[in-house]
């Protein structure tokens, strides 16, 4: 039995729903706050996820920039040595999707040479009539970047846990591979 600890960074444009997703995940869907302002919100969400078919778990420390994504020097500090990445865009905003490559690059630069398991999350699927980014388009880009792809609605509590469970599985697998490598050293 092992309990891993993973620093998870939330990346993406302002207002795509990063805080909403993190808070949904934290409260198991109990809270959807309609009126976030850029300055409110918790900086750190801590939550443990069990890995199916094992006794292992991953404790996430989710660093939410809480509006500070506007000030990039603050992000550099908040994002030091990430373990996993949750990259979020808004399916009704093409620009938020286009900016994902910039966010991904920035996050990977912080991982300084180590791999950075990640997921791409298209949020706000409840606004179906305003959709501007097709699933297939996001899927294709995510695949090219080695990211697992999800669509969610924090508002409708749709699928909000799946990206984090996927990150937990990826991180757990990385741990097992690394331990195997340690074992092979001597």
């Amino acid at each position: 039995m092992v309990k891993l600890a993973a620093k998870c960074i939330l990346a993406g444009d302002s207002t795509v729903g990063k805080t909403a997703l993190a808070q949904m995940f934290r409260t198991d869907g109990a809270h959807f706050q309609k009126n976030y302002t850029l300055t409110t919100g918790v900086d750190l969400v801590v939550k443990t996820v069990a890995i199916p078919d094992t006794e292992d778990s991953v404790e996430f420390f989710i660093f939410d920039s809480a509006g500070k994504e506007l000030f990039s020097e603050m992000l550099d500090k908040l994002w030091v040595s990430p373990n996993v990445l949750c990259l979020v865009y808004d399916v009704t905003s093409e620009q938020s999707f286009n900016n994902c490559s910039k966010w991904l690059e920035k996050a990977r630069a912080q991982a300084s040479g180590t791999s950075l398991p990640g997921v791409l999350v298209g949020n706000k699927t409840d606004l179906a009539g305003r959709r501007a980014v097709e699933s297939a388009q996001a899927q294709a880009w995510a695949q090219g970047q080695g990211l697992e792809c999800f669509e969610t609605s924090a508002k409708e509590m749709e699928n909000y846990e799946a990206p984090f469970h996927c990150l937990a599985r990826q991180f757990h697998q990385l741990y097992q591979e690394t331990v195997e490598a340690f074992q092979a050293l001597v």
Partner: peptide, 27 residues
């Protein structure tokens, strides 16, 4: 601060470099 039951910290002082302790997360 970390412990995986399969790789406990006692492995550090058992005199055998084949056994080890692993960290399990953030530093």
């Amino acid at each position: 601060t970390s412990s995986d039951e399969k790789h406990p910290p006692e492995n550090i002082i058992d005199g055998n470099p084949e056994t080890f302790w692993t960290t399990t997360g953030m530093f």
